[in-house]
């Protein structure tokens, strides 16, 4: 199972005041907060961790088919390797490791997560002006194979979107994310 999350850094600056008293304590563990405080670019570190958590949570929620909940402190991020454009890491949720990759530039941070380290994932970030659902469907149909009809997207009862052909859900998993001027998608080529 997979998940993805995108953060528009410009919007995050005006939308969220992480300097507010108590804010970071509600979202990050003690170790994460220390890494944020020690980092040269605190904004970037905060939204990197945040997007990793969101992406990992989505993957984990889908895997266990859970109703949504909100407890960011119960997830902990660990960075493994980084360069100037991307980083790999993992997020631990209830002793389970979720594997993440993040891409960033000065405008956005995009993370994707998977429960299996070797999962084959297609992920893309786009401008919000483009139609996210259509882009995902086009990319999916182009890479995942032939279908009797063009699939549609629908959300299930846990608000998790699925591909459907007529009323039949396809067993591929994917994730959509949208924030400000950017959106992103990820889907797995491993048929679940």
């Amino acid at each position: 199972m997979i998940g993805n999350d995108i953060v528009d850094l410009q919007l995050a600056k005006t939308q969220s005041n992480w300097r507010r008293r108590g804010y970071l304590q509600k979202i990050f563990t003690k170790e994460e907060r220390q890494q944020i405080l020690d980092s040269e670019n605190r904004d970037k570190m905060i939204w990197l961790f945040w997007s990793m958590k969101e992406a990992a949570y989505k993957a984990w929620q889908r895997k266990h088919n859970l109703a949504p909940k909100f407890n960011p402190c119960s997830l902990e991020c660990f960075l493994q390797s980084s360069n100037s454009k991307s980083t790999t890491g993992k997020v631990i949720i209830e002793e389970e490791s979720i594997f993440t990759k993040s891409f960033f530039n000065s405008n956005f941070i995009h993370s994707r997560a998977s429960c299996r380290e070797d999962e084959k994932i297609i992920w893309k970030s786009l401008s919000s002006k483009e139609d996210l659902r259509q882009s995902l469907l086009r990319e999916f149909v182009a890479t995942a194979g032939t279908f009797s009809k063009f699939p549609k997207l629908k959300k299930d009862r846990n608000f998790i979107p699925q591909f459907y052909i007529d009323d039949q859900a396809l067993s591929y998993n994917f994730s959509l994310s949208h924030h400000g001027s950017f959106s992103g998608f990820a889907f797995s080529l491993n048929n679940s």
């Binding site: 995050a12 939308q15 969220s16 005041n17 507010r20 008293r21 108590g22 804010y23 509600k26 979202i27 945040w50 969101e54 909100f70 407890n71 960011p72 402190c73 119960s74 924030h179």
Partner: peptide
């Protein structure tokens, strides 16, 4: 926005003078 859910919780804590644990 999910990052603003934290603001709502902090505002609730201030407004009602309570602590909302995780």
């Amino acid at each position: 926005n999910s990052a603003n859910l934290v603001d709502i919780i902090l505002d609730v804590e201030d407004e009602f003078d309570i602590e909302v644990d995780n």
